[in-house]
Computed example of a mutant assay.
Amino acid sequence: MSSHRLFRFPKPAWLNSANTRTAGVYAAGALFSLGFFLLIDVASWSKSPMNPSDPAVHVTFVDWIPGICSALGMLVINSIDKSRLSADSFSYSGNGVAWKARLVLFLGFALLAGGLAGSVVVLVLKYIVAEYVWPTIWMGVGNVVANGLVMLSSAVLWVAQNMEDEYTYNLAL
């Protein structure tokens, strides 16, 4: 047993397969698309002329800001090269690469958390405090669920990208 392992039990072999990594990437894409589908569904339900109960409040740009923050956070987090997070020992592109990468990673997570917190704030201030009934309050709940799905997809994609296969080679110039 390797002395670098944290736990006594070995990692299952299926966690290091290329098929598991591919399934994780597809699952993250499905969660992300489902999240933005919910945002578009809520916005279209808000403005629909076919809506039997025309809501007293409509989706505005304020409702979209948390989704935009979450999408930017996911983009920032998953565009960081994971090897740069501990790159100070063999830095070839300047000093302090690891702390810069960690700072950008923190900002990405802050955007994700801010998007989720912002959607909860919009739900509470715009829909719950004003005491709207259920079909209208779905616009706020859908926004929170959508941002939660974007955050979950970011975590799934992060884990899927960090899986290592012993037969995978990363060639970079």
Rank of each mutant, 00 (worst) to 15 (best):
P135V: 03
F90Y: 14
Y132I: 02
L111Q: 03
N143A: 05
G94S: 12
F109G: 10
G94K: 06
D88E: 01
G142F: 04
Y92K: 01
V124G: 02
K126E: 13
L111F: 13
I137T: 13
G115R: 02
G118I: 15
G142C: 04
G96V: 07
A101S: 15
L103N: 09
P135S: 07
A110E: 13
V122I: 15
L125P: 00
G108W: 01
V133S: 15
V122H: 06
M139H: 12
I137P: 00
K126T: 13
V121Y: 14
V104M: 12
W134E: 01
V129H: 11
G94W: 05
S91M: 04
V122S: 10
L123Y: 15
M139R: 06
A87R: 08
A87M: 09
V141E: 00
S91A: 15
Y132Q: 00
A117C: 15
A117R: 03
V120F: 10
V104W: 14
W138P: 00
S93A: 12
F90V: 05
A110I: 12
L116W: 11
S119I: 09
V145E: 01
F109H: 15
V145Q: 02
P135F: 08
E131A: 11
A87C: 08
L103M: 07
R102K: 15
L112E: 03
A101L: 10
G140P: 00
F90A: 04
I128Q: 10
L85R: 04
L85H: 07
S86I: 10
G140R: 02
G142P: 03
L112M: 07
T136H: 03
Y127W: 04
S86N: 15
R102W: 06
S91K: 06
D88Y: 02
V129K: 11
L123S: 03
G94F: 05
M139N: 09
G96N: 01
P135R: 02
V129R: 02
K100G: 04
D88C: 07
F106S: 14
Y127M: 09
L85N: 05
R102D: 02
V121L: 13
V144H: 05
F106K: 09
L123I: 13
K126F: 10
W134A: 07
W134V: 09
A101P: 14
V121G: 05
M139Q: 04
